[in-house]
């Protein structure tokens, strides 16, 4: 159903940069873009992640699943260094992005966050117009010509299927949009910076089923061109969209990665019994 809505709204126009909907996983050649090695994280004295190691593959959708409080949000925040903003948050271990040390003290964090965007559970449109929401970060990164800005705004709004809905009211406040539209605007705002990776923290869980379906189709279309890491509590959704999946669980009060592999394997032939119980809905 959501698929129909999506194809109806997005008549393929000239300025589209995203490909058409692709069939389900797996699709990609495993070429690691982000390598996480022995990552541990503490909030003060409280451990939140213990010894997590995994690779995020380029152009793929990686789903992270697991119960609340097992450190999925914390894990995503390490990848774009949002953890820097949390006082008392200590990170140990190595993370490489494009073979560069992502946790290096002299790394340009603003440039990193441009390459690795993040979408939050609750959409966070700024209290500005729809157009200004997209333009503000672009201007911050030095894009100043009105023509460039206009073109980029139109392009990303088309990419997320919002253009037809808002093209006549770009100056209207973004906060007047519906929840689903706000989330797509946030995705458009992140895409406008031409990132390589998008981190999505339960992007659909604040949305109604139809809006959630529209966003899900959008995430599918990001595959290939963008590397997506998505946290989701919706196992059916993870099964539909993910190429790779990682299952987190709390062990000895800290979040651990129990099992990681191709999504098909995790959902259909999990090795670990905890994973099996969780994906069959018996626990969690």
């Amino acid at each position: 159903m959501s698929l129909m809505i999506n194809t109806k709204k997005d008549n393929p126009g000239a300025a589209y940069t995203l490909g058409p909907l692709q069939a389900g996983p797996p699709c990609c050649v495993p070429e690691p873009l982000i390598q996480v090695d022995n990552l541990s994280l503490h909030y003060g004295a409280k451990p939140a992640l213990a010894k997590v190691s995994l690779d995020i593959y380029k152009g793929c959708i990686t789903a992270l699943i697991g119960p609340s409080g097992c450190g999925k949000t914390s894990f995503l925040s390490v990848l774009n260094r949002l953890t820097d903003m949390i006082p008392d948050c200590r990170v140990l271990g190595h993370v490489y992005f494009d073979n560069k040390d992502l946790r290096h003290p002299t790394l340009d964090v603003q440039a990193l966050r441009r390459d690795i965007g993040m979408i939050f559970q609750k959409p966070v449109p700024f209290p500005l117009s729809i157009r200004r929401n997209i333009e503000l970060p672009l201007r911050e990164h030095g894009m100043n010509k009105a023509a460039d800005l206009n073109a980029r705004v139109q392009q990303v709004l088309q990419d997320v299927g919002l253009w037809e809905e808002v093209k006549d009211r770009l100056e209207a406040p973004a906060q007047a949009l519906s929840g689903g539209q706000q989330q797509r605007l946030c995705i458009a705002r992140a895409l406008a910076l031409r990132p390589k990776v998008l981190l999505m923290d339960e992007p659909c869980s604040a949305l109604d089923p139809i809006a959630s379906g529209v966003v899900e189709d959008l995430i599918q279309r990001l595959r290939g061109q963008y590397t997506v890491v998505i946290v989701t509590h919706n196992l059916a959704q993870a099964r539909r969209i993910a190429n790779y999946a990682g299952f987190f669980w709390v062990k000895e009060r800290a979040g651990c990665l129990i099992e990681f592999g191709q999504a098909k394997q995790i959902f259909e032939a999990p090795v670990h019994e905890l994973t099996a119980a969780y994906v069959q809905g018996k626990r969690g």
């Binding site: 949002l82 603003q110 440039a111 990193l112 966070v124 503000l136 911050e140 946030c186």
Partner: peptide
């Protein structure tokens, strides 16, 4: 809202940009 600080940071905006464009007006 603290969300503005996080969202602005996640878009690679500097603290001072978030301050002048989002936090002070709010």
């Amino acid at each position: 809202p603290n969300d503005y600080r996080l969202a602005a940071a996640a878009l690679g905006m500097s603290r001072s940009a978030a301050l002048t464009h989002l936090l002070l007006p709010a």
